[in-house]
Simulated scan of single mutants.
Amino acid sequence: MTTRVFLVSAAIGEALREARFDDGSPLDASGLRAARTAADAGAVPAGGRVSVSPTVRCRQTAVALGLEGGSEATELAPLDVGRWRGATLAEVSAQEPEAVARWLGDPTSAPHDGESVRAFCDRVGGYLDLAAEHDGRTVAVVEPEVVRALVVRVLGAPESAFWRVDVPPLTVTELSGRAGRWNLRTGRPLA
């Protein structure tokens, strides 16, 4: 049984543009426009099932791409950054430089009282076990860090590699295979 999972990174919004930890902000006008353009161009992967990360940005991206009716996938929720939510990385770095350095250097660290990168990769990696139970295609609209975590898990890379994976908005990362053995195809733009 072969499964294909198409991870579509959400369109750009104000939080991403400002390098701010997600605070539930919506897509901005350019993000909405880009997603609608991709949908109009027929660039959205066809899938039997649709999963959507439970963020405003991902839900709005899914709708703009014509992927309404997808199920909310709580296991694909973004990294919980605890008390840093809504702040920019620059603000947090100025206020808590040692904590940020520890967080970026140690995947088991969670100085923000949220989720460590290791725990996040483990949680999100569980989604692949669920996806492997279904033959066929799934399209999942997710935040960039979800794609990063799944790439780390699929490649068997250490969690420290999480920070080395760039995921632009509205790109598709394809995973194909089955539980325990996945192939990776990265970064195809939707537009």
Score class of each variant (00 low, 15 high):
53 S>I: 04
111 P>V: 02
139 V>D: 06
152 V>K: 02
87 A>V: 04
178 R>L: 10
175 L>R: 06
97 P>M: 06
189 P>T: 09
43 A>G: 13
171 T>P: 02
12 I>W: 12
7 L>C: 11
111 P>Q: 02
164 R>K: 05
58 C>L: 13
112 H>K: 00
89 L>H: 03
185 R>D: 05
176 S>I: 05
54 P>C: 02
13 G>V: 10
16 L>C: 01
86 G>M: 07
49 R>T: 05
94 A>S: 14
63 V>M: 15
163 W>K: 01
174 E>W: 00
27 L>W: 09
87 A>C: 10
133 E>A: 15
96 E>F: 03
164 R>E: 09
92 V>H: 01
169 P>A: 14
124 V>P: 02
114 G>N: 00
157 A>D: 04
45 P>L: 13
126 G>C: 08
160 S>R: 12
135 D>V: 14
69 G>F: 10
157 A>M: 09
69 G>V: 08
91 E>W: 10
125 G>E: 10
149 A>H: 03
152 V>D: 02
132 A>S: 15
57 R>M: 15
139 V>G: 09
147 V>G: 09
132 A>C: 12
45 P>F: 08
113 D>W: 09
14 E>C: 01
42 G>P: 07
2 T>A: 10
35 A>I: 08
29 A>M: 09
82 G>N: 03
120 F>Q: 02
162 F>Q: 05
149 A>E: 01
163 W>F: 03
104 L>H: 01
9 S>I: 12
10 A>L: 13
136 G>T: 02
116 S>L: 04
179 A>L: 12
18 E>R: 14
86 G>F: 08
53 S>M: 08
84 W>R: 01
55 T>F: 14
64 A>H: 11
147 V>R: 08
182 W>C: 04
147 V>T: 15
33 R>Y: 15
147 V>W: 07
128 L>Q: 08
155 L>T: 01
130 L>T: 11
49 R>F: 05
68 E>C: 11
81 V>D: 01
130 L>F: 07
92 V>D: 01
141 V>F: 05
75 E>A: 04
96 E>P: 02
64 A>T: 14
118 R>M: 00
148 R>Y: 05
43 A>S: 14
125 G>Q: 08
160 S>L: 11
185 R>M: 02
40 D>K: 14
67 L>F: 12
98 E>P: 06
85 R>E: 13
174 E>F: 00
9 S>E: 13
129 D>A: 15
142 V>K: 07
157 A>Y: 11
144 P>Y: 05
68 E>F: 07
8 V>N: 12
184 L>C: 05
8 V>L: 14
137 R>M: 02
130 L>S: 13
34 A>V: 10
30 S>I: 10
94 A>C: 08
177 G>I: 12
11 A>K: 14
17 R>L: 12
40 D>A: 15
99 A>D: 06
119 A>P: 01
173 T>Q: 06
24 G>R: 11
153 R>E: 07
50 V>E: 03
130 L>V: 11
50 V>R: 11
97 P>G: 04
62 A>W: 12
165 V>N: 00
